[in-house]
């Protein structure tokens, strides 16, 4: 849905780094390099960003359409 605030395993804050991560990966940078630059060292935290699917935008889109109809 939306990026979790903390890493599930260790509890480090990861959400504040997500937007930069997303922007840079979409520009074509390798996720490994971006994660290293952001200082995310442990693999528990790295998988939080790597495996995240941000589908809140789709949900919002749905609500927008529903609003237009009813």
């Amino acid at each position: 849905m939306i990026i979790p605030i903390r890493c599930f395993s260790c509890g480090a804050i990861i959400a504040d780094k997500y937007e930069e991560y997303k922007k840079r990966v979409e520009k074509g940078e390798h996720p490994k390099k971006v994660l290293d630059d952001l200082g995310i060292k442990r693999y528990c935290c790295r998988r939080m960003l790597l495996s995240h699917i941000d589908y809140i935008d789709y949900v919002i889109e749905l609500e927008n359409r529903r609003g237009a109809v009813g």
């Binding site: 804050i13 504040d16 809140i56 609500e63 927008n64 609003g67």
Partner: peptide, 14 residues
């Protein structure tokens, strides 16, 4: 409070 932690996204009129 820390900066840049997204809490939620809001659509128009929400």
């Amino acid at each position: 409070l820390p900066k840049n932690i997204p809490i939620v996204k809001l659509a128009k009129n929400q």
